[in-house]
Design a protein around this nucleic acid. Structure first.
Length: 575
RNA sequence: CGGCUCGUAGCUCAGCUGGUAGAGCACGUGACUCUUAAUCAUGGGGUCGAGAGUUCGAUCCUCUCCGAGCCGACCA
């Protein structure tokens, strides 16, 4: 009575195949290792010699397509590296009298999606296709849920799975049926490895710092809160690791870096995920000029490692990561794109400039925020090619050293690429008295209503009191960098498992909930199939209509159940 | 948070000024020893996202909700 089950017809058939396989003495989930000798890529790339030698190979992977004929068949085997066609001939895999392995197991009990191992030799078919001629076929893992079917011919793909929800929620399916998706993640790994190799070659130390922090410092963002039971204190998931890495510079390391997951309890969109990866690096005795050159070299290396060229396509633009990048002060950038010189302007004057330029500004905004608003609205999106924007207003940068020649500014740069911020770096503030003052300015901002102001981390200030060498630090968003380097428009395409709203299952009462009210167990699946998934949903249903519907359903589907009486049905809906 | 679009078979998608649904692939059965989007024959498969309303009757109209995407706001 398949129709009454939760499972689809195809799922039921596959579960039955599972039983049949076991009855034949075949374990659909064998424990033993399988002695794979080659990947599909090994075979394809060495095909000429392997086929002329009829090299024996042992490959394993997933069945992605089957072309079954009488006593010979072909299937597509997909492994991590690609696909290859396998030729299965009945009398080759069943040399004796018993043809069960071919006729029953291969043709009927195996399915697309199953993971199998093949021992055989490399050859080319009459049609010219590179293939493996199977001499032994082993089921390694049975798939009981049908995969989406994607067809392909001459590189053209038919019925590709594009549904974003399925792709992101069930990334494992996406990776199987859209093999090109894995390229993005392989490149992501290569980006990180290239950076790590670069840092290590300079002798900098990869470190790990706390994710659970009592004070969420180092950035301005709303944190996720949690609670430690034994200590009975609130803890925050980190929004940045800057303050911890600088403590390590105080402790005497010359260069430290961390690829860190940060967490921010804010909005989600095409470029923001609640958890994201940032690389931060701090190097002693350097300043932000040095860091600009370091950043240029790092990004140029990444582009070359990935593409073999410094030119990278992003959307309809071509971005060139060739050193050196353009450098522009924030003041000059604003002058360039608005014609206004903000040098030496007071807060009130800046507010008027905003108004004249049509930039939204309100009373809670200080000088720093006003300038940032002008830059954000009028300049940022023009910076397509990598551009260092230097010398930010002091109010915006409470952890950054004052500019050596202008006390209203800081020695900070951001690297803009494709109109977006990619890197953020400072000559780090190491004057503990100044640092404490800046934290207190933040406190005042927060009292004024700025909910982005920073928390004060007194232990961090204490560490500076012991003395931190001059130092430059830089942070770069790895997700955003990966989006740029792989030309993906959405952060969800560079995260394996982007955050999604939880799936909700339709609520269903158990069979007991029905039977305890006098409804025969046989009728429960019928009622649920018709949408009455809970007893509550039956309340106030017209008994006549329900009676007609379920008896009709019984008849239509030839269930052969004894129909209830009209009075029975009345009692059901009166519960 | 606001605007727009979408949600129909396992997958990709049609459909209907409102009369409970179709295709291709996949799946079942049968045929077929070099196929390749295999082919041929035949068969089964659907709470049309959920709920409420209007109606004799809703997959379709109205409202609410859920989920997704795009744009904008906010946030970095």
């Amino acid at each position: 009575m398949a129709i009454l089950e939760e499972l689809s017809e195809q799922e039921i058939i596959r579960r039955q195949s599972l039983d049949e396989l076991r009855n034949l003495g075949i374990d659909p989930y064998p424990a033993a290792m399988y002695p794979v000798t080659h990947t599909t890529e090994d075979i394809i790339s060495n095909f000429e010699s392997m086929s002329s030698l009829q090299t024996n190979v042992c490959v394993a992977g997933r069945i992605m397509a089957r072309r079954i004929m009488g006593s010979a068949s072909f299937f597509e085997l997909q492994d991590e590296k690609g696909k290859i066609q396998v030729y299965v001939k009945r009398d080759d895999i069943c040399p004796g009298e018993d043809k069960t392995l071919y006729n029953t197991v291969f043709k009927r009990l195996l399915d697309i999606g199953d993971i199998v191992g093949v021992k055989g030799f490399v050859f080319r078919t009459q049609m010219g296709e590179e293939s493996v001629h199977a001499q032994e076929l082993t089921l390694l893992s049975k798939s009981i849920k049908p995969l989406p079917i994607v067809k392909e011919k001459d590189g053209q793909v038919f019925d590709a799975v594009t549904d974003a929800e399925l792709r992101y929620r069930q990334r494992y399916v996406d990776l199987v049926v859209n093999p090109h998706v894995r390229e993005v993640f392989i490149k992501r790994s290569k980006i990180i490895n290239t950076m790590r190799d670069f840092f290590n070659s300079k002798g900098y130390l990869e470190v790990e710092t706390p994710i659970l922090q009592p004070i969420p410092g180092g950035a301005t963002a709303r944190p996720f809160m949690t609670h430690h039971n034994a200590l009975d204190i609130p803890l925050y998931l980190r929004i940045a690791n800057e303050l911890y890495l600088k403590r390590l510079i105080v402790g005497g390391f010359n260069g430290v870096y961390e690829f860190a997951k940060d967490f921010r309890n804010e909005g989600m969109d095409r470029t923001h995920n609640p958890e994201f990866t940032v690389m931060e690096i701090y190097v002693a005795y350097k300043d932000y000029f040095w860091m600009m050159e370091f950043t240029e070299e790092m990004l140029e290396r990444v582009a070359l490692a990935l593409h073999g060229t410094t030119k990278v396509t992003i959307g309809d633009k071509e971005v060139d990561f060739k050193r050196p990048f353009r450098r522009l002060t924030m003041t000059d950038a604003i002058k360039e794109h608005t014609g206004v010189d903000i040098t030496g302007k007071t807060e009130d004057e800046l507010r008027k400039i905003c108004k004249d330029l049509g930039v939204d500004a309100d009373e809670t905004m200080g000088k720093g925020k006003l300038i940032d608003a002008i830059f954000g609205e009028k300049c940022e999106h023009h910076m397509i090619q990598p551009t260092f924007i230097m010398d930010y207003p002091i109010e915006m940068s409470p952890l950054c050293k004052r500019h050596r020649s202008n006390p209203e500014l800081t020695e900070r740069f951001e690297l803009m690429v494709n109109g977006k911020e990619l890197c953020n770096a400072y000559s780090e503030l190491n004057d503990p008295i100044d640092q404490m003052d800046r934290f207190q300015d933040q406190l005042r901002l927060s009292e004024k209503g700025d909910d982005e102001a920073m928390f004060i981390d007194l232990d961090f200030v204490r560490s500076l009191e012991y003395g931190m060498p001059t130092c430059s630090g830089m942070g770069i968003g790895i997700d955003r960098l990966t989006m740029f380097m792989t030309n993906q428009p959405s952060i969800q395409d560079v995260l394996f498992f982007p955050q999604m709203r939880p799936e909700k299952k339709a609520q269903k009462d158990t069979a007991e909930a029905y039977t305890s009210k006098g409804i025969p167990a046989d009728w429960v699946p019928v009622l649920q199939k018709m949408g009455f998934n809970t007893m509550a949903s039956l309340v106030n249903v017209a008994p006549g209509k329900l009676f007609n519907d379920i008896c009709g359903y019984n008849k239509k589907n030839k269930l052969g159940l004894a129909n209830p009486s009209m009075d029975d049905v009345k009692r059901w809906v009166e519960q």
